[in-house]
Nucleic acid binder design. Structure first.
Lengths: 169, 169
DNA sequence: GATGACTAGTTCATTCATTGAACTGGCTCA
DNA sequence: TGAGCCAGTTCAATGAATGAACTAGTCATC
């Protein structure tokens, strides 16, 4: 799906975007990166993605400048990657609206003042358009605690925390 | 990619959304539907998608309630489908920002007063959050006219027009 | 400096999806 | 009756995803 010639339409930025983040698993990797996942093994464990596919996706995300390798080998979102937040937010919003009758699965807040963020990422308290590193994400009313599967990465992810903050090693 | 058990994470609306619109081609079909494409043959011609895949994608979009069959057999976006506009807009915005140095490939305006829409879909003239049927889309500064390929569907799509308005038959 | 544990990958056979071209069958209008 | 159009289906070939097993490098410890 990633080949530049695949979605032939030269005049569509949607097609262009999908060439980069439209493949299976890719946006879920990006989501995990927003949640603070950085290491190969943590992505693999959290997503249940075959390791060969993970290798290939991480490589292409680094090649496209969405992720960078940190000094310790971890994968970090670049500014270009962080700019994907509206995409992730829009897809989460749509899923919440149509597939989560009990309410949103995760709530986003302005970490400074605790204000809820609206669909555009604006804080209900202070009205500011909250930058990604100041967004706190926490389980929402539609969240269902997983019975058995309490691996440490999921546990960290389902605890209130700021986006991009590395999960505990 | 569409199987409900594929993205196992029950607590992620992003994963849930991707089960519905995350497969190859699916969002491009939805985009074309926003642009007024309704007929099987027009989707096939515009996207260059294999007909067997198109059949399967349309079926699953109808099953999920994103599209409905009209009386004349055409495919129309439902309200649930129209609710995907922020997703399409976000992906187009990201593609424009990082892959279209000459500027956005398509400009959106409030058809009533001609005001440009910002990233949240708000009109620069009247400040309103413009509903999808009132959005006019037109070639932007980054648009490159295609030399040879002037099929009637592309031609219609690249002419200023309201979203959802059926392309001329 | 050997041992074991941990991490980040690679390899490979199987299964599954996509592709593209050709084909089918219904409908319409002459 | 027959030509043309439209909406699909069929099918062989290719390519990608899957999952399990394997490899290689790093680190700390004995």
């Amino acid at each position: 799906m990633a080949l530049p010639s695949t979605y032939a339409d030269r005049n569509c930025s949607l097609a262009r975007s999908l060439e980069v983040v439209g493949e299976r698993w890719t946006l879920l990797i990006v989501r995990d990166a927003f949640f603070g996942v950085r290491r190969f093994g943590d992505f693999a464990a959290q997503l249940g993605i075959p390791r060969a596919v993970l290798t290939s996706r991480l490589k292409s995300l680094v090649r496209e400048g969405v992720l960078v390798r940190a000094d310790d080998g971890g994968y970090l979102l670049t500014d270009k990657g962080i700019a994907l937040w509206p995409v992730v937010r829009a897809l989460m919003g749509w899923g919440d609206a149509f597939y989560s009758p009990a309410g949103e699965k995760r709530t986003t807040r302005h970490d400074e003042d605790g204000g809820r963020l609206d669909a555009d990422g604006r804080c209900a308290e202070c009205g500011a358009l909250v930058p990604v590193p100041e967004i706190r994400i926490e389980p929402g009313p539609g969240h269902q605690p997983q019975p058995g599967a309490a691996d440490p990465v999921s546990a960290a992810i389902n605890t209130p925390r700021r986006l991009l903050e590395p999960i505990a090693v």
